[in-house]
Simulated assay, not measured.
Amino acid sequence: MRFDVITLFPEIFSPFLTSGVTRRAYESGLVEVRLWNPRDFADGNYRRVDDRPFGGGPGMVMLAEPLTLCLESIRADRAACGAPDAPTVLFSPVGTVLSHASVERWSASSSGAVLICGRYEGLDQRFIDTHVDHQISLGDFVLSGGEIAAMALLDAVARLQPGVLNDEGSHQMDSFNPALDGLLDCPHYTRPETWRGQSVPPELMSGNHAHIERWRREQGLALTQRQRPELVRAARRAGHLSKSDEAFLADFPKNPDLDS
């Protein structure tokens, strides 16, 4: 799949695309990323891409024309390469918050997307109304630009591609995954068995795989109930909680080891 990224700072992406386990997705072409600078499509000696907002106020607004010319060039390049047309995504505080479910949908899309990284006070609304298909947010806070959000989406999509992670089943046990019924993952431990006076829970050392899996399920339930109770409610509404799950949750507030 192909992602075209419109950004005023393409150099930010260089270390991202060549570092970590997800670089396998980019180097192999499983996830193709092309970077486009709207300044290359701006007029004048200064290649201006922003101007003051009508009505006054602080900050600058990105101009619609360079962005449009950049987007048109992307679409022409996609057509010349035989790549399918793709939806246009703007990272914005008004967008839908990125979730595991939406990442799975993007990771299964053969067309990829055109990702627009805004800067300054935002984009001319006329460009948004004319060209943007989806708006995505990382949460209720504001970043200096959309580049970090774009990298978050690319990373989440890349790690779901076959062969990218060392263990193909690794992402199946991630928090929010359907394999965990949308709950949080359990805590994890590794060597040494005792670290600075703290020991690995004995359940993990039992060798009883069924017992270990139940312990992990209960720890995931406990963590989710403590940190994200709305996910437990969603799992219950979807019918994903077993009788043993419900029995554990019923006793959860009474267990001082889990309610601290």
Rank of each mutant, 00 (worst) to 15 (best):
A76M: 06
D51G: 09
P53E: 01
C70F: 07
M60N: 02
C70N: 01
P53G: 08
P66K: 11
G55N: 02
L67F: 02
T68D: 14
G55Y: 01
P53F: 08
G55C: 06
V61K: 14
A76V: 04
G44I: 00
L69W: 10
G44P: 08
R75K: 13
T68N: 10
R75P: 00
E72C: 04
R75M: 03
F54W: 14
R47S: 11
L69Y: 08
A64G: 10
R52L: 14
G44N: 09
E72F: 01
G44T: 10
P58C: 02
R75C: 01
M62G: 05
E65T: 14
P66L: 05
L63H: 05
A76D: 13
P66D: 00
R75H: 10
A64N: 06
N45S: 15
A64R: 10
L69K: 14
E65Y: 05
V61T: 10
R75I: 00
F54D: 12
R75V: 01
G55I: 04
L69Q: 15
V61S: 06
M60W: 10
M60D: 02
P66I: 09
E65M: 13
D51L: 06
Y46L: 14
R48V: 13
D50T: 12
R48M: 09
Y46P: 03
L71R: 10
L69S: 11
G57S: 01
P53V: 12
M62E: 05
P58S: 11
E72G: 03
V49T: 12
D51E: 13
P53K: 04
P58H: 02
M62I: 03
D51K: 11
F54Y: 15
P66T: 07
P58N: 07
D51T: 07
P66A: 04
I74D: 00
G59R: 01
Y46W: 14
E72V: 09
F54G: 12
Y46A: 14
E65V: 15
R52F: 13
E65N: 08
S73Y: 06
R48I: 11
G59N: 08
L69G: 09
N45Q: 15
R75F: 05
T68I: 03
M62W: 02
L71Y: 08
D51C: 04
R75Q: 13
G55T: 05
V49A: 14
A64P: 12
R75T: 00
P66E: 00
R75E: 11
R47V: 08
M62F: 03
S73D: 12
E72P: 13
I74T: 02
F54H: 15
E72Y: 03
I74P: 00
L69F: 06
R52Q: 13
G59Q: 07
A76G: 06
G57A: 01
V49N: 06
C70T: 14
V49Q: 02
R47A: 13
P66Y: 00
R48Q: 13
A64H: 04
V49Y: 06
L71N: 03
F54T: 13
D50Y: 09
L69V: 08
L67W: 06
L69I: 03
G56R: 08
N45M: 12
G57Q: 01
M60K: 05
A76I: 04
L67H: 04
N45T: 14
L67E: 09
T68E: 15
L63P: 03
L63V: 03
L63F: 03
